[in-house]
Nucleic acid binder design. Structure first.
Lengths: 232, 232
DNA sequence: CAAAAGACTTGATCTAGATCAAGTCGAGCT
DNA sequence: AGCTCGACTTGATCTAGATCAAGTCTTTTG
């Protein structure tokens, strides 16, 4: 792969601490690819040949059973996905498709496992990343099982507000129909949920959100670091 | 802790491959405790001081938010829990309570992290275990999001049947009210769900289940290794 | 043994959210 | 400008499962 990409990959927690030689060796086998929107990158059940890193765009992880399907997670830059399958050399449990035009690095799983055994810092980083992925899923599950859709939306808005800098007005970073899927509801109900938050001072204009009464919204949303704080 | 316990702990995947000296060092700081039923072992948000290993009994991992609570997982012997929090030295995301009289090993988290850095095999095992925990949660989430409660029960029965040896009749290994919680439904609905499976040849007498038409039940349940097979 | 508590079942009702069916609106195109 | 397509909204209905309220049955215990 082109060396120009190296720095941004190198900067990821996963790769930051490893020996240069090992990093180079990983990169030698890796390659970058651009994908158009709605391309299926991997399918559940397939062997895990590559560790994926999203450089730009976004990827939807979803799962299918008996003609039903459900969104499991959304991956945004810059982060990896299907690390667990790669490490355990097990089949993918989820399928992945690009949501938009995306730039993705593919690193052969075998190389990851090999370097894992020889680079202690890389090993440490993999464990930390894996533990964090695990914790993220648990948080998502708590969000889903403990909250109503209105509460999920309210907390999502607070998180997004924070990511956008904390101002009273900010933009959604998803199309609404995608946001609905991310929040585990239908587009129709998302629309209703936005209405349902009006009494708490939330107004929507297209993709722009304004929060007129921060305190009131927070009192309703009851954000909790053990669900909403992605850093811990 | 008493050395008599060592062999069964040592036999766990997590500890099987590590150097004897390191294992001894881990065990020196560990201790075993017996807990009565319904004792809260840890609470979410607390710092993760110990890695826990369930030797006997069973432990319910659950989570609470805004006066609601939900069962997240059930741990049965012999396995560990809260490995992710231990590794990342992060607060617990879930609370844990004994379901029945249980015997549990507590290993100081700091020791686990220390040995992780010096024992390559232990590191490898931790990563594998963590990846497997991750995958288990994903499977549980798929089970929950893609299936109705009737389908979840049907698949649970097939799994349990297999664990019990594969015969047409076998025993549940939970009280029904606990099973309901494990399957993410209320006891009332579990009762109805058992009725709902009668047309597929399932009959229930107390805690004893008989499956009269294996094929028919499987056709309804549509078991899938990417959800139901805990070994991969 | 009797009573009392707990586990389980059954039926009636309620509710969050999905689904179905029209809409409206705005951006890009001819 | 007028059209068209897709995203969004709105309202009506449907459904899985929860909740509430009695029950019955079983097991523990005084």
């Amino acid at each position: 792969m082109p060396e120009a990409q190296y720095p941004e990959i190198r900067a990821l927690n996963l790769f930051a601490g490893m020996a240069e030689a090992n990093f180079q060796s990983l990169m030698r086998g890796a390659y970058v690819q651009n994908f158009p929107p709605q391309i299926e990158l991997i399918g559940e059940g397939e062997p895990s040949d590559f560790l994926h890193v999203v450089l730009s765009g976004s990827v939807d992880l979803f799962s299918t059973w008996n003609r039903r399907d459900t969104n499991m997670a959304t991956v945004r830059p810059i982060s990896t996905f299907i690390l667990a399958a790669t490490i355990n050399n097990a089949p993918y449990l989820m399928s992945a498709r690009t949501l938009e035009k995306s730039r993705i690095v593919l690193i052969p799983s075998q190389d990851v496992r090999t370097i894992f055994d020889v680079d202690r810092n890389f090993a440490r980083a993999i464990v930390a990343e894996l533990a964090q992925c695990y914790r993220s899923v648990i948080k998502a599950q708590k969000d889903l099982k403990l909250r109503t859709s209105l509460e999920r939306l309210a907390n999502y808005l607070l998180r997004q507000q924070r990511r956008a800098g904390g101002g009273a007005a900010f933009d959604l970073d998803f199309e609404k129909r995608r946001l609905a899927s991310v929040l585990g509801m239908t587009p129709e109900n998302l629309s209703r949920a936005f209405k349902g938050l009006q009494p708490y001072g939330v107004s929507v204009e297209g993709t722009r959100i304004s929060i007129s009464d921060q305190i009131d919204l927070e009192r309703f949303a009851k954000p909790n670091p053990l669900i909403d704080d992605f850093s811990t």
